[in-house]
Design a protein around this nucleic acid. Sequence first.
DNA 1: TTCTGACTTTGGACTAGTTCCAAGCTTGGG
DNA 2: CCCAAGCTTGGAACTAGTCCAAAGTCAGAA
Lengths: 138, 138
Amino acid sequence: MSDLLARLRDRGWRLTAQRRVVAEVLNGEHVHLTADEVHSRAGALLPEISRATVYNTLGELVALGEVLEVNTDGRAKRYDPNARRAHHHLVCTRCHTIRDVPADPRTEVLPAESGFGFAISGVEITYRGLCPDCQNAS
Amino acid sequence: MSDLLARLRDRGWRLTAQRRVVAEVLNGEHVHLTADEVHSRAGALLPEISRATVYNTLGELVALGEVLEVNTDGRAKRYDPNARRAHHHLVCTRCHTIRDVPADPRTEVLPAESGFGFAISGVEITYRGLCPDCQNAS
DNA sequence: TTCTGACTTTGGACTAGTTCCAAGCTTGGG
DNA sequence: CCCAAGCTTGGAACTAGTCCAAAGTCAGAA
């Protein structure tokens, strides 16, 4: 993720403290924060950052393909920094934890006869179930 | 869909004009209306129906499993009366038309080793691409 | 180093979509 | 036909997100 900033500079991004902090917050595996969560975590590092800036920066990162926008629950969008490796999502129906699962090319073909003539360009899969913790808790 | 009302009565639903009209509006193949669209179409049949009632009724139909809630774009939820046959969605990236595609059991298995120990209970797939009309228009 | 213009950030107002609520109305069993 | 439980209503409230004009800052040029 540290070379994310380098990539962004190469693309003409002005490097501001705010953007650095947003990039830092979006760091790691299985990270799927809402804009609001990004804002409050960024605010812990840079207190005066505004919500508008967080939304702007997330929107730009998505447009550049550095971050994925994920919508698993019809509520707030989540931002997923794992944009380099194709993957899908596994969502716990009880605690709403999200895990990334690697994409498997075998499961992503739409049988041609059901395609209605669409030119398919992408597939999103959301698996739902109980995570191990919630299985034990129930 | 006409026996939907019968099923609902059997489950103790009070049959009101409003509920009848909402059920009627949600009728057909490849129907994916927003709550607002349901409200304005229902309003054409029963002018005084309120937005709150449309939301209530849709929520109840979803809870009973008679209608599916679909969220393909992070904007308004859509309501899909095709809840009896397992299926997925094909969304045009340009005009946002939605088509139902039958589920194919072969494409819905999550390789066990990537499952993180989840007990999977369901899968949603969204295929994205250009619909035939938009391919011609471009 | 300083200047400077283009790019960024900011807070607050605004919108869309949805939920909540208390008051009034309807349905259908008795 | 009565009436209690259940339903509907309009409006206020809430959540997530967008927009805007003014003020601030980065980084290349001098």
